[in-house]
Design a protein around this nucleic acid. Structure first.
Ligand SMILES: [Mn+2]
Ligand SMILES: [Mn+2]
Ligand SMILES: [Zn+2]
Ligand SMILES: [Zn+2]
Lengths: 144, 144
DNA sequence: ACCGTATTTGCATCTCATGCGAACTGCCAA
DNA sequence: TTGGCAGTTCGCATGAGATGCAAATACGGT
C-alpha cells in the first residue's frame, strides 16, 4: 500500500476523512510484512491509542482493501490476514509457528495445467494465481 | 478417499463403528468432486436420511480428515471445503459461481522461489505446495 | 441375545466478522 | 473563525461457521 501521506491525500480526495485512528493504522500497516489479523493489529494499535475500537480497525481494513491498498488472504486455521504488499508475490507458511513470509516466484506462467480427463486446453480464464508453500521456517526446522 | 467398502473395513479394524450415518456419508463423499462444505453435505444427506444431524456430519468429516481420507481446504469467503481427492492436485476457483475444479499441474518443482532481499537459497523446508487459480469458469465466461 | 463402548444428537459455547445507530468530529464553506 | 453537515467511531447486537458436552441410543464382539 501507499505511504501514510499518499493515503491521506487519497482519502481526502474521495471525500473520506483522515482521523487519528486511520492515521495510526496507515502507519502500522505501511511496510508491515507480518500479515497481521485484524485482532493482532488492534493489539498493537491499542498500545499507542488506548480506546481505539476493534470495530474501527475492521472498518478501516475493509476500506483499504476495497481501495486496493491491501489484500486480504485466508490461509485457513483462523482469522483472515491483511497484506499491504499488493504486488505480485506468494507465501510461505510455517506449519509450526504460523509465520507467513513473502516470496517471489519465477516460472508461474510456465506451469502446465490440465484437467484429469481432458489433457488438452481447458477454457478456464485465469485472472490470478496464488501459491502457498507450507513447511517449516528456519527457526522451527531445528526445534524438532 | 477409499471406497465405502474399504472404509467399512478400515473403521472396524480401528474399533470404530460403521453406522448408517457414516455409510451414507461414505457414499456421498466417494468420488465427489464438488468440494462440498459440511453444510452442503448435510443438505444432501438430509434428503436421504431425514433427521441426520449436522453435528454428525462435522464429526465424520473430521474423523475422515484425521485418517487422511479427506483433506480440508480453506479457499476463503466462507466455510471450509472437504476434498476426497487426496492425491497431488491443485484447484481452479471461479470467482463468479464459486465452482471449484481439480487441476493437475506440471512444473511445480521447477518453480524458482526467492525472498526479496536474499536471492540465494532460502532455508524454508517446503512440505507441500498449494496452488489456486482464480478466474472465470467456462459457463461464467460468457455471461458478462 | 447381552453388554460395554462408541456414536448420535441437541444445545450451549466460542471465534471471527458484520449490522446498527447514537454520539462525535473532520473539514469545507460562509 | 465558526457553523454545520456528512462521514466516523464505538459499543452492542447479531450472524456464520465450528466445536464442546452429556444424555440417550445403537453397533458389534462374545
Ligand atoms: Mn504477502
Ligand atoms: Mn480437489
Ligand atoms: Zn516457524
Ligand atoms: Zn463460474
Amino acid at each position: 500500500m501507499r505511504t501514510p501521506a499518499e493515503l491521506t491525500t487519497a482519502f481526502r480526495s474521495l471525500g473520506l476523512k483522515v482521523t487519528p485512528q486511520r492515521q495510526l493504522l496507515f502507519r502500522l500497516l505501511h511496510d508491515n510484512t507480518t500479515h497481521p489479523t485484524a485482532e493482532a493489529l488492534f493489539e498493537v494499535a491499542s498500545a499507542q491509542m488506548p480506546g481505539i475500537s476493534l470495530r474501527t480497525v475492521y472498518q478501516t481494513l475493509t476500506d483499504l482493501a476495497g481501495m486496493g491498498e491491501l489484500q486480504s488472504i485466508a490461509f485457513g486455521g483462523g482469522a483472515i490476514r491483511f497484506d499491504p504488499n499488493v504486488g505480485q508475490h506468494h507465501h510461505q507458511v510455517c506449519v509450526s509457528c504460523d509465520e507467513i513470509t513473502d516470496v517471489y516466484v519465477d516460472g508461474v506462467d510456465q506451469l502446465n495445467v490440465s484437467l484429469r480427463n481432458e489433457p488438452d486446453a481447458h477454457s478456464f480464464a485465469t485472472a490470478s494465481t496464488d501459491i502457498v508453500f507450507r513447511g517449516r521456517c528456519v527457526r522451527c526446522a531445528d526445534t524438532v
